[in-house]
Computed example of a mutant assay.
Amino acid sequence: MLLEAGYRVVCPDIMGFGRTDAPHIDQASDMAYYSFKRAADDIKELARQMGCETIILGGHDWGGAIVYRTALWHPELVSHLFTVCTPYWAPTKTHAPLASLVETRLPNWGYQLRLASGDVENRIVSKPDIKQFLNAVYGGRGPNGEAGFSHTKGPLYEHLPKLNRTPLMGEELLEFYGAEYERHGLRGTLNWYRNREQNFNDELRLERKTIDVPVLFIQATNDAALRTLFP
Results as ranks from 00 to 15, higher is better:
residue 1 M to D: 00
residue 2 L to M: 13
residue 6 G to C: 08
residue 8 R to I: 08
residue 9 V to H: 01
residue 10 V to P: 13
residue 10 V to L: 15
residue 13 D to V: 01
residue 25 I to A: 04
residue 28 A to K: 15
residue 29 S to L: 12
residue 30 D to W: 08
residue 31 M to Q: 15
residue 31 M to A: 02
residue 34 Y to R: 05
residue 35 S to P: 06
residue 35 S to F: 08
residue 36 F to N: 11
residue 40 A to V: 02
residue 44 K to P: 02
residue 44 K to C: 14
residue 45 E to H: 12
residue 47 A to V: 00
residue 48 R to H: 12
residue 48 R to T: 10
residue 50 M to T: 01
residue 52 C to P: 03
residue 53 E to N: 07
residue 53 E to T: 06
residue 55 I to F: 11
residue 56 I to N: 12
residue 56 I to M: 14
residue 57 L to Y: 06
residue 61 D to G: 04
residue 62 W to L: 15
residue 64 G to H: 07
residue 66 I to Q: 15
residue 66 I to V: 08
residue 79 S to G: 02
residue 79 S to Y: 02
residue 81 L to R: 03
residue 82 F to Y: 11
residue 83 T to C: 04
residue 84 V to R: 03
residue 86 T to S: 13
residue 87 P to M: 07
residue 90 A to F: 04
residue 91 P to V: 03
residue 94 T to Y: 04
residue 94 T to F: 04
residue 96 A to H: 14
residue 97 P to L: 06
residue 99 A to D: 15
residue 100 S to A: 09
residue 102 V to L: 09
residue 102 V to C: 02
residue 104 T to E: 11
residue 105 R to D: 15
residue 106 L to V: 05
residue 113 L to R: 00
residue 116 A to Y: 01
residue 118 G to Q: 10
residue 119 D to M: 09
residue 122 N to S: 13
residue 125 V to M: 07
residue 125 V to K: 13
residue 126 S to E: 10
residue 126 S to F: 05
residue 132 Q to Y: 06
residue 133 F to Q: 01
residue 138 Y to T: 12
residue 138 Y to P: 06
residue 140 G to C: 06
residue 142 G to H: 05
residue 143 P to M: 11
residue 144 N to D: 03
residue 149 F to V: 03
residue 151 H to F: 15
residue 152 T to N: 03
residue 152 T to M: 01
residue 157 Y to G: 10
residue 159 H to Q: 14
residue 159 H to K: 08
residue 160 L to P: 04
residue 162 K to C: 08
residue 165 R to E: 03
residue 165 R to L: 04
residue 168 L to G: 05
residue 170 G to C: 08
residue 170 G to D: 12
residue 172 E to Q: 07
residue 182 E to T: 14
residue 183 R to M: 01
residue 186 L to C: 03
residue 187 R to L: 00
residue 188 G to N: 03
residue 189 T to V: 15
residue 192 W to V: 00
residue 192 W to H: 13
residue 203 E to G: 10
residue 208 R to V: 06
residue 210 T to V: 10
residue 213 V to Q: 05
residue 213 V to G: 07
residue 213 V to R: 07
residue 215 V to G: 00
residue 215 V to F: 09
residue 216 L to P: 09
residue 220 A to Q: 07
residue 223 D to G: 13
residue 224 A to I: 08
residue 226 L to E: 09
residue 227 R to Q: 11
residue 230 F to Q: 08
